[in-house]
């Protein structure tokens, strides 16, 4: 078949909502876009363990520590589901890890912000995981089968993350004056970066059109962001806290919230590597990888040794 026919066959499958599976023919750009997006999603799960890992030893109670541990462990699992999905497109795990460590591959900028207080754990669960869930719910219907299935698994586990975050903030919001202030401060610091998680405005996003046509994405950045604002603006009333945006206002005509402008200079600055924790996060990942090298080598050597036929000496000893 000539390439035009392959391409039109491919698009017609997408239009009919037939999932694309790994061995199916796909345009090279579709493969590349998916590899880029899935691996960056995977990296985000893995790097995302770092800001929360920071608080495991300092969680205020055994209950909160157990919850936080379980949540961070989930993120590792999510990273694995996603790496496995990206591997079906022909890129090895080692290459992906290498691209992360050299800075060639990005991860979500949100994890380049520091976690300064315990309340940040609640704010991350509620806002950051809340934003991620909206994206991942959409991705359960993405056109590439393995990526869609990975997101279904992720979403099943992720809703506990958001709920435990809100639950944690709710306790603080009903606590002492200091606890309330800590809660509000965390919301103030995480609100705008959470809005940035949805990416640039539709008018400035280079990947939107083609990704929508290929149904890799089902909603645009701005649509998802609006959905998030509408959800959080209601939920925050239960906490009795404020979102740090004086332009936030219900628009009766549009039946949605109006909100202020994101600081796009900050957004691009963090994307380009100049956020508060970019270096720290990457260094931590590289260090963990390098220091784990001997463990991986030893495990491999042990597996090889066990596969080898026993030496005569070994047999003697066994006898």
């Amino acid at each position: 078949m000539i390439i035009q026919d392959l391409e039109s066959n491919f698009q017609s499958k997408i239009d009919q909502e037939i999932k694309i599976e790994p061995k199916d023919w796909m345009p090279e750009a579709y493969r590349k876009t998916n590899i880029r997006q899935i691996s960056q999603h995977a990296h985000s799960e893995i790097v995302g363990m770092l800001p929360e890992g920071n608080w495991i030893t300092r969680a205020p109670s055994l209950k909160r520590k157990a919850i936080l541990l379980a949540k961070v462990q989930d993120e590792a699992g999510h990273g694995l589901y996603l790496y496995a999905a990206a591997e079906t497109l022909g890129m090895s795990r080692d290459e992906m890890i290498n691209d992360l460590h050299t800075g060639k591959a990005k991860y979500s900028s949100i994890f380049n912000y520091p976690t300064l207080t315990w309340a940040d754990m609640g704010a991350i669960g509620w806002l950051v995981d809340g934003a991620a869930i909206l994206n991942q719910v959409m991705l359960c219907r993405t056109s590439y089968g393995p990526y869609a299935r990975a997101n279904v698994k992720i979403c099943k586990e992720e809703s506990f993350h958001q709920r435990q975050g809100f639950d944690s903030l709710l306790v603080l919001s009903r606590g002492t004056v200091e606890q309330k202030a800590m809660c509000q401060d965390a919301i103030n610091r995480w609100w705008w970066p959470s809005l940035m998680m949805f990416g640039p405005r539709d008018s400035e996003s280079t990947n939107n059109d083609q990704s929508m046509k290929w149904k890799i994405k089902r909603k645009t950045n701005d649509e998802l962001r609006q959905q998030f604002v509408d959800m959080i603006a209601e939920q925050i009333k239960v906490l009795g806290m404020q979102l740090p945006d004086d332009k936030l206002k219900w628009n009766e005509e549009k039946k949605q919230y109006d909100f202020g402008e994101i600081n796009w200079d900050e957004f691009w600055n963090v994307v380009k590597g100049n956020g508060p924790c970019n270096n720290q996060r990457l260094d931590a990942r590289k260090k963990a990888h390098e220091e784990g090298n001997w463990v991986r080598d030893a495990a491999m050597a042990y597996a090889k040794k066990r596969k080898m036929p026993p030496s005569p000496e070994g047999e003697l000893r066994a006898a």
Binding site: K23, R31, T88, L89, G90, M91, S92
Partner: peptide, 10 residues
């Protein structure tokens, strides 16, 4: 194989 994730060009 699909699940070994290897494909042409890699």
């Amino acid at each position: 194989l699909e699940i070994t994730g290897q494909s042409e060009g890699y």
